[in-house]
Design a protein around this nucleic acid. Sequence first.
DNA 1: CACATAATGTAACATAACAAACATTATGTT
DNA 2: AACATAATGTTTGTTATGTTACATTATGTG
Lengths: 237, 237
Amino acid sequence: MSRTSLKSERLEKLAVMLAVQSPLKLEVAAAELGVSEMTVRRDVLDSGGRFTCLGGHVIGAQNDIAGDYVLEQEIDHHAAAKAKACARAANLVEDDDTIFIDCGTTTPHLAAMIPQDLRLTAVCYSLNIADILSRRQNTRLILLGGLFHPEAASFSGDVALQELQRLSINKAFISAGGVDEQRGVTCSHFHEVPVKQAAMARSVQSHLVVDSSKFDKVRPAFFAQTDAFVSICSDRG
Amino acid sequence: MSRTSLKSERLEKLAVMLAVQSPLKLEVAAAELGVSEMTVRRDVLDSGGRFTCLGGHVIGAQNDIAGDYVLEQEIDHHAAAKAKACARAANLVEDDDTIFIDCGTTTPHLAAMIPQDLRLTAVCYSLNIADILSRRQNTRLILLGGLFHPEAASFSGDVALQELQRLSINKAFISAGGVDEQRGVTCSHFHEVPVKQAAMARSVQSHLVVDSSKFDKVRPAFFAQTDAFVSICSDRG
DNA sequence: CACATAATGTAACATAACAAACATTATGTT
DNA sequence: AACATAATGTTTGTTATGTTACATTATGTG
Protein backbone atom coordinates (compact mmCIF):
# COMPACT_ATOMS: atom_id res chain seq x y z
CA MET A 1 0.00 0.00 0.00
CA SER A 2 1.31 3.40 -0.88
CA ARG A 3 -0.32 4.86 2.23
CA THR A 4 1.67 2.66 4.51
CA SER A 5 4.85 3.63 2.74
CA LEU A 6 3.97 7.28 3.20
CA LYS A 7 3.57 6.70 6.90
CA SER A 8 6.86 4.85 7.27
CA GLU A 9 8.49 7.54 5.15
CA ARG A 10 7.29 10.12 7.65
CA LEU A 11 8.59 8.01 10.50
CA GLU A 12 12.01 7.96 8.85
CA LYS A 13 11.93 11.70 8.51
CA LEU A 14 10.90 11.94 12.13
CA ALA A 15 13.90 9.85 13.11
CA VAL A 16 16.13 12.24 11.21
CA MET A 17 14.58 15.30 12.74
CA LEU A 18 14.90 13.81 16.20
CA ALA A 19 18.56 13.05 15.57
CA VAL A 20 19.03 16.75 14.98
CA GLN A 21 16.70 18.07 17.62
CA SER A 22 14.91 16.34 20.45
CA PRO A 23 12.44 16.88 22.00
CA LEU A 24 10.76 18.12 18.86
CA LYS A 25 7.64 20.26 18.96
CA LEU A 26 4.65 18.44 17.54
CA GLU A 27 3.71 21.63 15.75
CA VAL A 28 7.12 21.85 14.09
CA ALA A 29 7.12 18.19 13.13
CA ALA A 30 3.70 18.53 11.56
CA ALA A 31 4.71 21.57 9.54
CA GLU A 32 7.92 19.91 8.43
CA LEU A 33 6.17 16.74 7.34
CA GLY A 34 3.37 18.64 5.67
CA VAL A 35 0.63 16.97 7.69
CA SER A 36 -1.54 17.86 10.67
CA GLU A 37 -0.48 17.42 14.26
CA MET A 38 -3.09 14.73 14.66
CA THR A 39 -1.49 12.67 11.91
CA VAL A 40 1.89 12.97 13.58
CA ARG A 41 0.30 11.74 16.78
CA ARG A 42 -1.21 8.77 14.98
CA ASP A 43 2.09 8.00 13.28
CA VAL A 44 3.88 8.04 16.60
CA LEU A 45 1.20 5.77 18.10
CA ASP A 46 1.74 3.32 15.23
CA SER A 47 5.51 3.47 15.43
CA GLY A 48 5.64 0.40 17.61
CA GLY A 49 7.34 2.20 20.45
CA ARG A 50 10.03 3.87 18.40
CA PHE A 51 8.71 7.28 19.38
CA THR A 52 6.60 8.81 22.11
CA CYS A 53 4.43 11.89 22.40
CA LEU A 54 4.89 13.85 25.59
CA GLY A 55 3.77 17.35 26.40
CA GLY A 56 3.20 18.30 22.81
CA HIS A 57 6.60 17.05 21.76
CA VAL A 58 7.92 13.99 20.03
CA ILE A 59 10.81 12.20 21.68
CA GLY A 60 12.77 9.13 20.75
CA ALA A 61 11.89 5.88 22.45
CA GLN A 62 13.23 5.64 25.98
CA ASN A 63 14.09 2.65 28.10
CA ASP A 64 10.75 1.98 29.75
CA ILE A 65 8.39 1.24 26.94
CA ALA A 66 9.59 -2.36 26.38
CA GLY A 67 6.54 -4.39 25.37
CA ASP A 68 4.87 -6.80 27.74
CA TYR A 69 4.68 -6.92 31.48
CA VAL A 70 6.48 -10.17 32.23
CA LEU A 71 9.60 -9.23 30.31
CA GLU A 72 9.38 -5.73 31.67
CA GLN A 73 9.57 -6.99 35.23
CA GLU A 74 12.42 -9.33 34.33
CA ILE A 75 14.32 -6.47 32.78
CA ASP A 76 13.63 -4.24 35.74
CA HIS A 77 14.78 -6.93 38.12
CA HIS A 78 18.10 -7.36 36.37
CA ALA A 79 18.34 -3.63 35.87
CA ALA A 80 18.12 -3.05 39.61
CA ALA A 81 21.01 -5.46 40.25
CA LYS A 82 23.03 -3.91 37.46
CA ALA A 83 22.31 -0.42 38.74
CA LYS A 84 23.43 -1.44 42.22
CA ALA A 85 26.67 -2.91 40.88
CA CYS A 86 27.27 0.19 38.79
CA ALA A 87 26.55 2.52 41.69
CA ARG A 88 29.52 0.96 43.48
CA ALA A 89 31.68 1.24 40.39
CA ALA A 90 30.65 4.87 39.88
CA ASN A 91 31.92 5.67 43.37
CA LEU A 92 35.42 4.71 42.28
CA VAL A 93 35.59 7.40 39.64
CA GLU A 94 37.46 10.54 40.66
CA ASP A 95 38.14 13.93 39.21
CA ASP A 96 40.62 13.98 36.32
CA ASP A 97 40.48 10.23 35.88
CA THR A 98 40.92 8.58 32.53
CA ILE A 99 38.49 5.71 32.47
CA PHE A 100 37.64 2.90 30.10
CA ILE A 101 34.07 1.68 29.94
CA ASP A 102 33.31 -1.70 28.46
CA CYS A 103 30.29 -2.51 26.31
CA GLY A 104 27.25 -4.58 27.19
CA THR A 105 23.93 -4.09 28.95
CA THR A 106 25.42 -3.39 32.38
CA THR A 107 27.87 -0.61 31.65
CA PRO A 108 25.31 1.88 30.30
CA HIS A 109 24.07 2.16 33.88
CA LEU A 110 27.58 3.02 34.95
CA ALA A 111 28.01 5.61 32.24
CA ALA A 112 24.78 7.26 33.32
CA MET A 113 25.61 7.20 37.02
CA ILE A 114 28.98 8.88 37.01
CA PRO A 115 28.50 12.31 38.62
CA GLN A 116 28.20 14.97 35.95
CA ASP A 117 30.53 17.41 37.63
CA LEU A 118 33.56 15.13 37.41
CA ARG A 119 36.16 16.16 34.85
CA LEU A 120 37.05 13.02 32.93
CA THR A 121 38.61 11.47 29.91
CA ALA A 122 36.47 8.51 28.96
CA VAL A 123 37.29 5.76 26.49
CA CYS A 124 34.72 3.37 25.08
CA TYR A 125 34.02 1.25 22.03
CA SER A 126 30.27 0.95 21.86
CA LEU A 127 27.60 3.17 20.43
CA ASN A 128 25.24 3.28 23.40
CA ILE A 129 27.99 4.13 25.89
CA ALA A 130 29.34 6.81 23.59
CA ASP A 131 25.86 8.22 23.28
CA ILE A 132 25.53 8.61 27.04
CA LEU A 133 29.03 9.99 27.54
CA SER A 134 28.72 12.44 24.66
CA ARG A 135 26.10 14.38 26.60
CA ARG A 136 28.44 15.11 29.48
CA GLN A 137 29.78 18.62 29.77
CA ASN A 138 33.15 18.10 31.39
CA THR A 139 34.23 14.93 29.68
CA ARG A 140 36.62 14.30 26.86
CA LEU A 141 35.27 11.32 24.98
CA ILE A 142 37.35 8.93 22.92
CA LEU A 143 35.53 6.30 20.92
CA LEU A 144 37.48 3.39 19.51
CA GLY A 145 35.99 2.94 16.06
CA GLY A 146 36.05 0.22 13.48
CA LEU A 147 33.57 -2.35 12.25
CA PHE A 148 30.20 -2.27 13.96
CA HIS A 149 28.78 -5.36 15.66
CA PRO A 150 25.03 -5.01 16.17
CA GLU A 151 24.83 -7.76 18.83
CA ALA A 152 26.63 -5.61 21.35
CA ALA A 153 26.49 -2.22 19.59
CA SER A 154 30.28 -2.31 19.75
CA PHE A 155 33.14 -1.71 17.36
CA SER A 156 36.23 -3.74 16.57
CA GLY A 157 39.36 -3.26 14.53
CA ASP A 158 43.12 -3.26 14.85
CA VAL A 159 43.35 0.51 14.48
CA ALA A 160 41.25 0.74 17.61
CA LEU A 161 43.80 -1.41 19.38
CA GLN A 162 46.56 0.84 18.06
CA GLU A 163 44.77 3.85 19.45
CA LEU A 164 44.51 2.11 22.81
CA GLN A 165 48.27 1.59 22.87
CA ARG A 166 48.72 5.35 22.96
CA LEU A 167 46.38 5.89 25.87
CA SER A 168 47.11 5.55 29.54
CA ILE A 169 44.10 4.64 31.58
CA ASN A 170 43.54 5.00 35.32
CA LYS A 171 40.58 2.74 35.76
CA ALA A 172 39.13 0.21 33.37
CA PHE A 173 35.55 -0.89 34.06
CA ILE A 174 35.08 -4.27 32.45
CA SER A 175 31.85 -6.22 32.23
CA ALA A 176 31.40 -9.92 31.59
CA GLY A 177 28.79 -12.53 30.79
CA GLY A 178 30.30 -15.12 33.10
CA VAL A 179 32.51 -15.18 36.19
CA ASP A 180 33.86 -18.50 37.43
CA GLU A 181 36.54 -19.11 40.02
CA GLN A 182 38.34 -21.77 37.94
CA ARG A 183 37.30 -20.96 34.37
CA GLY A 184 37.95 -17.25 34.76
CA VAL A 185 36.07 -14.31 33.27
CA THR A 186 34.26 -14.82 29.97
CA CYS A 187 31.98 -13.06 27.51
CA SER A 188 29.83 -13.96 24.50
CA HIS A 189 31.47 -12.06 21.67
CA PHE A 190 34.96 -12.99 20.52
CA HIS A 191 35.67 -9.66 18.87
CA GLU A 192 35.49 -7.97 22.27
CA VAL A 193 38.32 -10.04 23.72
CA PRO A 194 41.29 -8.15 22.22
CA VAL A 195 39.79 -4.79 23.19
CA LYS A 196 39.07 -5.83 26.78
CA GLN A 197 42.55 -7.32 27.16
CA ALA A 198 44.26 -4.29 25.63
CA ALA A 199 42.28 -1.92 27.83
CA MET A 200 43.18 -3.88 30.94
CA ALA A 201 46.83 -3.95 29.90
CA ARG A 202 46.85 -0.18 29.47
CA SER A 203 45.07 0.50 32.74
CA VAL A 204 46.51 0.99 36.20
CA GLN A 205 43.46 -0.62 37.79
CA SER A 206 40.87 -2.95 36.32
CA HIS A 207 37.46 -3.31 37.93
CA LEU A 208 35.00 -6.04 37.07
CA VAL A 209 31.41 -4.79 36.95
CA VAL A 210 28.83 -7.58 36.96
CA ASP A 211 25.55 -8.32 38.67
CA SER A 212 25.47 -11.45 40.80
CA SER A 213 23.53 -13.44 38.21
CA LYS A 214 26.79 -13.81 36.28
CA PHE A 215 28.57 -15.67 39.05
CA ASP A 216 29.41 -19.31 38.31
CA LYS A 217 28.42 -18.82 34.68
CA VAL A 218 30.72 -19.59 31.76
CA ARG A 219 30.57 -17.98 28.32
CA PRO A 220 32.48 -19.06 25.21
CA ALA A 221 35.04 -16.24 25.00
CA PHE A 222 37.63 -16.24 27.79
CA PHE A 223 39.48 -13.00 28.35
CA ALA A 224 40.91 -12.82 31.90
CA GLN A 225 41.48 -14.55 35.21
CA THR A 226 39.56 -13.25 38.19
CA ASP A 227 42.73 -12.11 39.94
CA ALA A 228 43.44 -9.67 37.14
CA PHE A 229 40.90 -7.34 38.75
CA VAL A 230 41.49 -5.03 41.69
CA SER A 231 37.85 -5.23 42.66
CA ILE A 232 34.59 -6.83 41.66
CA CYS A 233 31.67 -4.39 41.69
CA SER A 234 28.45 -6.32 42.15
CA ASP A 235 25.02 -5.92 43.73
CA ARG A 236 26.23 -8.22 46.51
CA GLY A 237 29.41 -7.44 48.41
CA MET B 1 25.87 25.05 51.40
CA SER B 2 24.21 21.87 52.51
CA ARG B 3 21.02 22.83 50.68
CA THR B 4 22.74 23.02 47.36
CA SER B 5 24.33 19.66 47.95
CA LEU B 6 20.91 18.25 48.72
CA LYS B 7 19.72 19.50 45.38
CA SER B 8 22.61 18.02 43.45
CA GLU B 9 22.14 14.82 45.43
CA ARG B 10 18.58 14.67 44.20
CA LEU B 11 19.76 15.28 40.66
CA GLU B 12 22.09 12.31 40.95
CA LYS B 13 19.24 10.14 42.16
CA LEU B 14 17.17 11.40 39.27
CA ALA B 15 19.90 10.36 36.86
CA VAL B 16 19.91 6.88 38.32
CA MET B 17 16.14 6.60 38.18
CA LEU B 18 16.10 7.81 34.60
CA ALA B 19 18.72 5.25 33.64
CA VAL B 20 16.27 2.60 34.69
CA GLN B 21 13.03 4.20 33.60
CA SER B 22 12.45 7.10 31.28
CA PRO B 23 10.24 9.02 30.88
CA LEU B 24 9.65 9.15 34.60
CA LYS B 25 6.41 10.47 36.04
CA LEU B 26 6.94 13.69 37.95
CA GLU B 27 4.64 12.35 40.64
CA VAL B 28 6.74 9.18 41.01
CA ALA B 29 10.00 11.09 41.06
CA ALA B 30 8.66 13.42 43.75
CA ALA B 31 7.52 10.52 45.93
CA GLU B 32 10.79 8.69 45.41
CA LEU B 33 12.86 11.72 46.34
CA GLY B 34 10.63 12.68 49.24
CA VAL B 35 9.87 16.17 47.97
CA SER B 36 7.01 17.91 46.20
CA GLU B 37 6.54 17.88 42.45
CA MET B 38 7.26 21.58 42.40
CA THR B 39 10.69 20.98 43.88
CA VAL B 40 11.45 18.36 41.28
CA ARG B 41 10.47 20.85 38.61
CA ARG B 42 12.77 23.48 40.11
CA ASP B 43 15.59 20.96 40.36
CA VAL B 44 15.17 20.04 36.74
CA LEU B 45 15.11 23.71 35.78
CA ASP B 46 18.38 24.23 37.63
CA SER B 47 20.02 21.13 36.18
CA GLY B 48 21.62 23.13 33.42
CA GLY B 49 19.96 21.17 30.66
CA ARG B 50 20.70 17.73 32.01
CA PHE B 51 17.02 17.02 32.38
CA THR B 52 13.78 18.28 30.95
CA CYS B 53 10.19 18.36 32.16
CA LEU B 54 7.69 17.39 29.51
CA GLY B 55 4.09 16.42 29.88
CA GLY B 56 4.34 15.78 33.59
CA HIS B 57 7.38 13.58 33.14
CA VAL B 58 11.10 13.95 33.58
CA ILE B 59 13.29 12.88 30.71
CA GLY B 60 17.04 12.88 30.27
CA ALA B 61 18.67 15.56 28.17
CA GLN B 62 18.25 14.88 24.48
CA ASN B 63 20.19 15.73 21.39
CA ASP B 64 20.09 19.36 20.65
CA ILE B 65 23.02 19.96 18.39
CA ALA B 66 21.79 23.45 17.83
CA GLY B 67 21.87 25.03 21.25
CA ASP B 68 20.05 28.31 21.10
CA TYR B 69 16.73 29.29 19.65
CA VAL B 70 17.90 31.34 16.72
CA LEU B 71 19.92 28.49 15.31
CA GLU B 72 17.10 26.10 16.10
CA GLN B 73 14.74 28.01 13.88
CA GLU B 74 17.39 28.17 11.20
CA ILE B 75 17.68 24.41 11.21
CA ASP B 76 13.95 23.91 11.08
CA HIS B 77 13.60 26.32 8.25
CA HIS B 78 16.27 24.70 6.13
CA ALA B 79 15.26 21.16 6.98
CA ALA B 80 12.99 20.89 3.96
CA ALA B 81 15.74 22.07 1.63
CA LYS B 82 18.20 19.69 3.20
CA ALA B 83 15.80 16.80 2.86
CA LYS B 84 15.32 17.66 -0.80
CA ALA B 85 19.05 17.79 -1.42
CA CYS B 86 19.53 14.49 0.39
CA ALA B 87 16.73 12.83 -1.53
CA ARG B 88 18.74 13.43 -4.69
CA ALA B 89 21.89 12.15 -3.08
CA ALA B 90 20.10 9.06 -1.80
CA ASN B 91 19.13 8.21 -5.37
CA LEU B 92 22.79 7.82 -6.25
CA VAL B 93 23.33 4.99 -3.81
CA GLU B 94 23.27 1.51 -5.34
CA ASP B 95 23.37 -2.03 -4.09
CA ASP B 96 26.78 -3.21 -2.80
CA ASP B 97 28.15 0.32 -2.71
CA THR B 98 30.71 1.41 -0.19
CA ILE B 99 29.74 4.91 0.80
CA PHE B 100 31.17 7.61 3.02
CA ILE B 101 28.78 9.96 4.81
CA ASP B 102 30.05 13.24 6.16
CA CYS B 103 28.96 14.80 9.44
CA GLY B 104 26.78 17.87 10.01
CA THR B 105 23.10 18.69 10.15
CA THR B 106 22.41 17.86 6.51
CA THR B 107 23.77 14.35 6.19
CA PRO B 108 21.54 12.75 8.85
CA HIS B 109 18.71 13.28 6.39
CA LEU B 110 20.69 11.36 3.80
CA ALA B 111 21.52 8.52 6.16
CA ALA B 112 17.85 8.04 6.94
CA MET B 113 16.68 8.32 3.34
CA ILE B 114 18.79 5.59 1.84
CA PRO B 115 16.46 2.70 1.03
CA GLN B 116 16.60 0.08 3.76
CA ASP B 117 16.83 -2.84 1.37
CA LEU B 118 20.15 -1.77 -0.16
CA ARG B 119 23.16 -3.86 0.85
CA LEU B 120 25.89 -1.40 1.78
CA THR B 121 29.16 -0.76 3.49
CA ALA B 122 28.89 2.66 5.10
CA VAL B 123 31.69 4.71 6.58
CA CYS B 124 31.11 7.68 8.84
CA TYR B 125 32.75 9.65 11.65
CA SER B 126 29.94 11.18 13.61
CA LEU B 127 27.73 9.86 16.38
CA ASN B 128 24.35 10.81 14.98
CA ILE B 129 25.05 9.33 11.56
CA ALA B 130 26.37 6.13 13.12
CA ASP B 131 23.25 5.96 15.24
CA ILE B 132 21.01 6.05 12.20
CA LEU B 133 23.11 3.65 10.14
CA SER B 134 23.47 1.17 12.99
CA ARG B 135 19.76 0.42 12.78
CA ARG B 136 19.97 -0.79 9.19
CA GLN B 137 19.73 -4.51 8.58
CA ASN B 138 21.83 -4.99 5.48
CA THR B 139 24.59 -2.54 6.15
CA ARG B 140 28.10 -3.02 7.35
CA LEU B 141 28.95 0.06 9.39
CA ILE B 142 32.43 1.39 9.94
CA LEU B 143 32.82 4.30 12.33
CA LEU B 144 36.06 6.24 12.34
CA GLY B 145 36.69 6.85 16.00
CA GLY B 146 38.90 9.18 17.95
CA LEU B 147 38.37 12.28 20.01
CA PHE B 148 34.80 13.50 20.20
CA HIS B 149 33.85 17.03 19.14
CA PRO B 150 30.47 18.02 20.56
CA GLU B 151 29.92 20.91 18.12
CA ALA B 152 29.43 18.52 15.24
CA ALA B 153 29.05 15.23 17.13
CA SER B 154 32.04 14.04 15.14
CA PHE B 155 35.31 12.30 15.86
CA SER B 156 38.86 13.08 14.84
CA GLY B 157 42.23 11.39 15.10
CA ASP B 158 45.08 10.15 12.99
CA VAL B 159 44.22 6.51 13.54
CA ALA B 160 40.90 7.26 11.89
CA LEU B 161 42.82 8.59 8.90
CA GLN B 162 44.93 5.44 8.89
CA GLU B 163 41.80 3.34 8.84
CA LEU B 164 40.52 5.36 5.90
CA GLN B 165 43.69 4.58 3.93
CA ARG B 166 42.76 0.92 3.99
CA LEU B 167 39.27 1.47 2.67
CA SER B 168 38.17 1.87 -0.91
CA ILE B 169 35.03 3.93 -1.26
CA ASN B 170 32.64 4.12 -4.20
CA LYS B 171 30.82 7.29 -3.34
CA ALA B 172 31.67 9.92 -0.78
CA PHE B 173 28.84 12.23 0.27
CA ILE B 174 30.38 15.41 1.58
CA SER B 175 28.57 18.32 3.18
CA ALA B 176 29.76 21.88 3.60
CA GLY B 177 28.96 25.13 5.32
CA GLY B 178 29.89 27.25 2.35
CA VAL B 179 30.20 26.85 -1.41
CA ASP B 180 31.78 29.59 -3.47
CA GLU B 181 32.88 29.50 -7.10
CA GLN B 182 36.23 31.15 -6.41
CA ARG B 183 36.87 30.45 -2.73
CA GLY B 184 35.93 26.79 -3.05
CA VAL B 185 34.17 24.56 -0.55
CA THR B 186 34.49 25.36 3.15
CA CYS B 187 33.25 24.25 6.56
CA SER B 188 33.30 25.56 10.14
CA HIS B 189 35.37 22.96 11.97
CA PHE B 190 39.03 22.54 11.17
CA HIS B 191 39.30 19.04 12.55
CA GLU B 192 36.93 17.81 9.86
CA VAL B 193 39.18 18.93 7.03
CA PRO B 194 41.67 16.01 7.04
CA VAL B 195 38.86 13.45 7.25
CA LYS B 196 36.88 15.00 4.41
CA GLN B 197 39.98 15.24 2.24
CA ALA B 198 41.09 11.69 2.98
CA ALA B 199 37.62 10.33 2.27
CA MET B 200 37.49 12.16 -1.05
CA ALA B 201 40.94 10.88 -1.94
CA ARG B 202 39.91 7.31 -1.23
CA SER B 203 36.63 7.58 -3.13
CA VAL B 204 35.94 6.94 -6.79
CA GLN B 205 33.26 9.64 -6.81
CA SER B 206 32.69 12.57 -4.48
CA HIS B 207 29.30 14.21 -4.23
CA LEU B 208 28.65 17.53 -2.53
CA VAL B 209 25.41 17.57 -0.54
CA VAL B 210 24.29 21.06 0.44
CA ASP B 211 21.10 23.04 0.48
CA SER B 212 21.03 26.17 -1.62
CA SER B 213 21.42 28.47 1.38
CA LYS B 214 25.11 27.52 1.43
CA PHE B 215 25.82 28.92 -2.03
CA ASP B 216 28.07 31.97 -2.12
CA LYS B 217 28.87 31.51 1.56
CA VAL B 218 32.40 31.18 2.88
CA ARG B 219 33.41 29.42 6.11
CA PRO B 220 36.82 29.49 7.77
CA ALA B 221 38.03 25.97 6.94
CA PHE B 222 38.75 25.32 3.25
CA PHE B 223 38.87 21.71 2.15
CA ALA B 224 38.23 21.39 -1.60
CA GLN B 225 37.64 23.11 -4.90
CA THR B 226 34.21 22.81 -6.43
CA ASP B 227 35.52 20.84 -9.41
CA ALA B 228 36.62 18.04 -7.08
CA PHE B 229 33.00 16.89 -7.01
CA VAL B 230 31.27 14.79 -9.61
CA SER B 231 27.93 16.33 -8.71
CA ILE B 232 26.33 18.82 -6.37
CA CYS B 233 23.16 17.55 -4.73
CA SER B 234 21.01 20.50 -3.74
CA ASP B 235 17.36 21.44 -3.39
CA ARG B 236 17.74 23.42 -6.59
CA GLY B 237 19.08 21.77 -9.75
C1' DC C 1 18.29 34.47 69.90
C1' DA C 2 16.52 37.03 66.42
C1' DC C 3 17.16 38.17 61.88
C1' DA C 4 17.89 37.56 56.88
C1' DT C 5 17.98 34.47 53.24
C1' DA C 6 17.42 30.51 50.88
C1' DA C 7 14.72 26.37 50.04
C1' DT C 8 10.52 24.12 49.77
C1' DG C 9 5.41 23.61 49.99
C1' DT C 10 0.63 24.93 48.72
C1' DA C 11 -2.99 26.72 46.16
C1' DA C 12 -5.07 28.64 42.14
C1' DC C 13 -5.32 30.01 37.62
C1' DA C 14 -4.51 30.29 32.45
C1' DT C 15 -3.19 27.52 29.02
C1' DA C 16 -2.30 23.96 26.03
C1' DA C 17 -2.32 19.02 25.40
C1' DC C 18 -4.96 14.91 24.56
C1' DA C 19 -8.70 12.20 22.86
C1' DA C 20 -13.18 11.48 20.76
C1' DA C 21 -16.29 12.24 17.20
C1' DC C 22 -17.22 13.55 12.91
C1' DA C 23 -16.01 15.57 8.20
C1' DT C 24 -13.18 15.22 4.35
C1' DT C 25 -10.05 13.57 1.19
C1' DA C 26 -7.35 10.01 -0.96
C1' DT C 27 -6.79 5.11 -2.55
C1' DG C 28 -7.91 0.78 -4.48
C1' DT C 29 -11.21 -2.46 -6.58
C1' DT C 30 -15.05 -4.45 -9.21
C1' DA D 1 -17.40 5.31 -12.68
C1' DA D 2 -18.99 4.14 -8.33
C1' DC D 3 -18.26 2.07 -4.28
C1' DA D 4 -15.80 0.65 -0.01
C1' DT D 5 -12.06 1.47 2.79
C1' DA D 6 -8.29 3.61 4.55
C1' DA D 7 -5.91 7.85 5.70
C1' DT D 8 -5.96 12.42 7.08
C1' DG D 9 -8.07 16.85 8.65
C1' DT D 10 -11.04 19.60 11.84
C1' DT D 11 -13.49 20.62 15.66
C1' DT D 12 -14.65 20.37 20.37
C1' DG D 13 -14.52 19.73 25.31
C1' DT D 14 -12.33 17.77 29.23
C1' DT D 15 -8.26 17.34 31.55
C1' DA D 16 -3.98 18.16 33.69
C1' DT D 17 0.22 20.55 32.94
C1' DG D 18 3.02 24.39 33.97
C1' DT D 19 3.27 28.77 35.95
C1' DT D 20 2.59 32.43 39.23
C1' DA D 21 2.19 34.13 43.65
C1' DC D 22 2.31 33.64 48.27
C1' DA D 23 2.86 30.82 52.65
C1' DT D 24 5.84 28.05 55.26
C1' DT D 25 9.78 25.89 56.78
C1' DA D 26 14.68 25.33 57.10
C1' DT D 27 19.49 27.27 57.19
C1' DG D 28 23.13 30.39 58.22
C1' DT D 29 24.89 34.66 60.66
C1' DG D 30 25.83 38.56 63.65
